[in-house]
Design a protein around this nucleic acid. Sequence first.
DNA 1: CCATTTCATGTAATCCATTACATTGCGCCG
DNA 2: CGGCGCAATGTAATGGATTACATGAAATGG
Lengths: 359, 359
Amino acid sequence: MSADGTKTRRQAGDGQRTGAAPPARVRTIKEIAAIANVSVATVSRALQRPEVVSEVTRQRIQEVVKRLGYTPNALARNLRTARTRLIVALLPDIANPFFSEVIRGIEQVAHESGYSVLLGETQSSLVREQAYADMIAARQADGIITMSHRVPKIPMPGRLPVVNACEYVKDKQISSVYVDNVAAAGAAVDYLVMLGHREIAFIAGPPSSPICVDRKQGYRLALQRAKLAVDPALMVSGDFSIEAGERAVELLLSQGQSFSAVFCSNDEMAIGAMRALSSHGLRVPEDVSVVGFDDIRFARYTSPALTTIAQPKNALGREAMAMLIELLADPEVPPRKRVLSADLVVRGSTAPPSPRKRK
Amino acid sequence: MSADGTKTRRQAGDGQRTGAAPPARVRTIKEIAAIANVSVATVSRALQRPEVVSEVTRQRIQEVVKRLGYTPNALARNLRTARTRLIVALLPDIANPFFSEVIRGIEQVAHESGYSVLLGETQSSLVREQAYADMIAARQADGIITMSHRVPKIPMPGRLPVVNACEYVKDKQISSVYVDNVAAAGAAVDYLVMLGHREIAFIAGPPSSPICVDRKQGYRLALQRAKLAVDPALMVSGDFSIEAGERAVELLLSQGQSFSAVFCSNDEMAIGAMRALSSHGLRVPEDVSVVGFDDIRFARYTSPALTTIAQPKNALGREAMAMLIELLADPEVPPRKRVLSADLVVRGSTAPPSPRKRK
DNA sequence: CCATTTCATGTAATCCATTACATTGCGCCG
DNA sequence: CGGCGCAATGTAATGGATTACATGAAATGG
């Protein structure tokens, strides 16, 4: 048996469908051990910690592994070792380009530490969030980074292996990374005020999300700083979609509200807002200035290019993953809320209000 | 022991960090069995096929399960049953909004059949593709839908549980769903010809991708149908990014090429192209018409709105997942290449060429 | 009333790898 | 030369579920 040649006869791809399935099978460590004439322990060691196996044995085993195309069954290994080196990143909507760069940051750090990232799109649905979160309890993944404002319930004792990114929850036990939304929104509105705007509309995000509440608060505070009235009629809510931005502006216009600037809680709503404005014959920025939030990739390519708040997307992702890795390594590390800063990027969609009142 | 009360004292959340970890542990089926006073087999049955367990026993078990917050260890289960009900969707770039809707289609069908979808972003990197593909060989997932033109090598006998979506490979053994790119690209160019354009530039995608070759071929054939010369100087390659579209147009303009229309292999390059054109003082569509491919969500919101080829994104995803499920259920089903059709959507970025020659 | 199903449940094998502990052989030291 | 330590390997327990098969009790039938 050990006298077999070095040539391998390949059976794969014999497209024949003659009733019986081809005899090729998935290999187990046992078979490798038998063929390499060692015990399963030695095979396992040769693969896991090659340095403890003698040179000659290791080579023999590796040759067999390669020849038979053996891949260890990760389920068995993970069951035994109780770690998967997999983390799940939950995001509400992969269509939202804001998350792309956050994900990229997550993956960079994950990769550096030997973790793989699996993405779960939740569509903000509780059941989907829960389904992915259950993968933790079921031990299919080691941890979760969630980009929503809900922390899924994981039936698990002690500290949950969960980190919140871009959002945050009240729960002090959950570590989060996010930006100072109050300050960032304030900066956007301060800028509009500085340009001379006095009637600034606001398109808010879903009120269930703390960061949206913060952005609204930042807007309010900035108005107060400028001694401007906070007019509830100029505040409309949307769901972060382009269409919501359009609808919001439609609503303001149909109500005959007067405003020379609109601050939107994200870039997509800003794009919708610009669209609605121009379809009503209002020019941006000459008639109405528009400011977004996030600085998604397309923000640079709208016409005019969008003035917006740039979130440190990559850093948010990197930091979130770093925190999660830290937490997985030591469940005792105290939770923390890390706040990054977000800066205003001025592009073409903002200008001083035109002297002649529109309409 | 069985006389314990029904009240549960919750220990979770006692934020104290007094040295020792809290005693709460993860439960196993054994503990549940012991507490419910049955064998592990009965617990397993009560959870898997409740109908074979007597009413009273089932209720007792369920009560214990609930009270202790027991979640079966999926690793153990999957190891035993050799299925995970997880599939991995590989996509080159989650920042590309084209894929979002495809994913959505995949998830819809997956969900209907009890599968969960995990997303793997590959950045078109072979090693990342391979890393995710290895999850199949390692039994961490049941199958893969890949949206690239490469089929990862999976060391596995017989038919690979892989379906190709939006792209296709030569390998006859791999099922694919995609659109007729030759016809779709042809339709776009036919339309430009019909408008009266005679000098139509083309921005190609990466030549390594079969669908890009097809789109270029569709462009060529349409020109030939119209008895127009195929001018290699009007064909530029890009990598699907907005920036690539900009660079392509910059290149054409810097070479002094004359063209009244540009057909781009995807919408993002079309957005870049429009941007570059207008930054050179050329108006779209008055001076140059632009056509994209994909019909991503933002295509409707560029100004002017982008004329493009609409791929049936949701259907591509649904069909791909349906094929994969079929394949997982029966590895003997013959592979097939399913071709859907893609239709031209006319918006504002196209118009007849202006009578006076530009420049 | 005994034999035969049927139902509910238990026992133990199994999935496949990791790893603690045991064993073997060898070189080195006193 | 006996004993010790070390290196290389083997044996077997282990992780947590599923499930084939066995068992016992109750129901059914003749």
